[in-house]
Structure formats: structure tokens, C-alpha cells
């Protein structure tokens, strides 16, 4: 099992590289570099635009390097007409709390499915998998009506409460697959030593499953940070907006449309779009190794 993950996370520098005889390293790297350029170009272009003055943005032909560097755009985007500092705090609340809820509830459920025998277990797990294929739009209208009835609209409850009820089928699936690689003997040994099911879960299972838990945490964090549809439907007060909705609001203000700031301010839009993207990139940078190992280990190998 660990043999599968090793090649992905560790590059053995001393070993012979697996270049094909036909496709030499030069052709290989040229292909990869071309692909990387295509992926990076939009981001680099956004960075370049974000550092230009309003006059330079619409210069033709476009210039790659801004002259001078207008660092002030970031400050202006951050604390101009639209309160991005507020949006960041809001997003942290509706990202971190539900992510904790997803980890806790989905790992308990996955633990139940992986370690305990009970009637209808396979059928119930099949239902979990089936929910992966149900588009969220089917439930969004009744959910809206129920939340409205409960007085939860324009609050963070629609984001927080469901997360504590194992609302992510994919996370349950991923954690269960990982838990299945942990031998049952370990639990039996722990039971003989007097550990109850919850002690085993907390003291042994979770610490052993750090990679899978990290994977679930990253997926949940990124998904919730970037979510747009949910906030669009459930939130209406600007001071409660998360960054995704805030950015969309920012676009109607600075995008040059009617009722906004008149001329489109591409440099401010790009600065805001990049600022909003930063947290997920930082989280991924820190968790990358464990994240990828979690995906591989969780056995999406067919």
C-alpha cells in the first residue's frame, strides 16, 4: 500500500529516471513547459494588470511589465468602497467552522461504516455513494424554503448546521476507504487493552489517518472558500458577504457597468481577484504532500 504512494511523493534523485528512449528529456520538458505556460499565462497577466495604473491598462499593444509598479492598487482594492477585510473574516467563519464539522461528522460516520458490522450496512453505504450523483440544485429550492421558514436566511446557519451532519458523501467515502486499510486487529488489541470505541477513534484511528483527514480538510476548505451559489441564495446583507459574493459585487461596481464607478477598473478587479485566491493557494502549499498522499491512498484506483 505504501509502495503505491512512495513514487508520487518522493523523488529519488539517485535512481535512474524513466525517460523513454523515443521521447527524450528535451522533448518531454518542452511539452511540459508549454503546458505550464498556458496554465500560468492568465495568472501572470492578471498580476501584471493588477500592478498597472488605470492609464496603462488599456494601452495597445499591451505591455507585459507595468511601469511604474502601482502597488497602491492592492490597498485600494482591499479597503476601498467594498469592505474586503470584512468579507475575509466572514469567509473564514463560514469556511473553518463547517470544515471542522465535516471532518468530525464524516470521520465518525466513516468509522462506523469501516469498523462495525450492522444490518443494512452495505445498502446504507450504497445510498451514501448514490448521493454523490444528486445535483445540489434538486434540493436547493426546498432548502431555501425550509431555511426561510426557520428564519435562517441571511444568517450563517445554512452553511454551518448541515456540515455537522456529514453532508459530504465524498469525504465519507474517502475516509472509509482509508480506514479500511487499517487492520481490524489493531482495534481488537486496543479493546483488549481496555480502550472503548471512542478512545480507539480519537487516540489511534485519527492520528493514523492524518493524510486522509488532511485531504478532506483541504477539499472542504477550498470548496467552501470558493462557494458562490450558496451565498448567492442564502445571504442578502452586504456586510455578511463572503469573498466570492463580495468579488462579484466588486465587479458590478468596478466593471464599468451602469450604477458603478463608471470606467472599468481592470487593475482593481485583478488585484481583488488575486487577493481572494491567495488563502486557498497558501493552504494547499502547506498541505500539498499529505493531500496528494491522501487521494492516492484512499484507493481511487478503480
Amino acid at each position: 500500500m505504501s509502495g503505491l504512494a512512495a513514487p508520487l511523493t518522493r523523488v529519488r534523485r539517485g535512481s535512474r529516471l524513466r525517460y523513454g528512449a523515443a521521447a527524450g528529456p528535451v522533448a518531454y520538458y518542452a511539452l511540459i513547459a508549454a503546458g505550464a505556460a498556458v496554465v500560468l499565462l492568465p495568472i501572470l497577466w492578471a498580476v501584471s494588470t493588477s500592478l498597472k495604473t488605470a492609464g496603462q491598462v488599456f494601452a495597445f499593444p499591451p505591455q507585459a511589465i507595468p511601469r511604474p509598479f502601482a502597488w497602491g492598487n492592492y490597498a485600494q482594492a482591499w479597503s476601498g468602497t467594498v469592505p474586503f477585510d470584512r468579507f475575509f473574516v466572514n469567509t473564514l467563519v463560514i469556511t473553518l467552522v463547517p470544515t471542522a464539522g465535516t471532518i468530525l461528522s464524516c470521520s465518525l460516520v466513516a468509522y462506523g461504516f469501516a469498523f462495525f458490522r450492522f444490518p443494512l450496512r452495505n445498502l446504507l453505504f450504497l445510498i451514501v455513494l448514490a448521493t454523490l450523483m444528486i445535483p445540489s440544485q434538486v434540493t436547493v429550492i426546498p432548502m431555501y424554503i425550509v431555511f426561510r421558514y426557520l428564519g435562517w436566511l441571511d444568517t450563517y446557519k445554512p452553511f454551518i448546521v448541515p456540515a455537522f451532519f456529514a453532508d459530504s458523501a465524498f469525504s465519507i467515502f474517502l475516509l472509509r476507504q482509508f480506514f479500511l486499510t487499517i487492520p481490524l486487529d489493531l482495534r481488537d488489541a486496543a479493546t483488549i487493552d481496555g480502550a472503548g470505541p471512542m478512545t480507539f477513534y480519537w487516540r489511534i484511528l485519527l492520528p493514523l489517518s492524518r493524510a486522509a483527514v488532511t485531504t478532506v480538510a483541504v477539499i472542504s476548505f477550498v470548496g467552501r472558500w470558493n462557494d458562490f451559489f450558496g451565498p448567492l441564495i442564502y445571504l442578502s446583507s452586504i456586510q455578511k458577504f463572503p469573498v466570492s459574493l463580495g468579488l462579484s459585487f466588486f465587479k458590478t461596481f468596478y466593471g464599468g457597468g451602469s450604477g458603478g464607478a463608471g470606467v472599468p477598473h481592470m487593475e482593481l478587479l485583478m488585484a481583488a481577484a488575486l487577493l481572494v485566491s491567495l488563502p486557498t493557494i497558501v493552504v494547499f502549499a502547506f498541505a500539498q504532500r499529505a493531500y496528494i498522499r491522501g487521494v492516492i491512498m484512499s484507493g481511487l484506483r478503480g
Partner: peptide, 25 residues
């Protein structure tokens, strides 16, 4: 197994991390 392959994987993964609203803009 080529040098810096994990850096390359992270690089290609980058667009997936950005909010769709930011990508759209």
C-alpha cells in the same frame, strides 16, 4: 520520476484552487 515533478503538479493544480468568481473575472 523526474526532478521537480511535485512542483509541476502543484503548478498545474493552481487554477483549481482559485474561486470560480476570480477565474471568471
Amino acid at each position: 520520476r523526474v526532478p521537480a515533478v511535485s512542483v509541476l503538479r502543484a503548478l498545474f493544480y493552481l487554477p483549481e484552487l482559485m474561486p470560480t468568481v476570480a477565474t471568471a473575472i
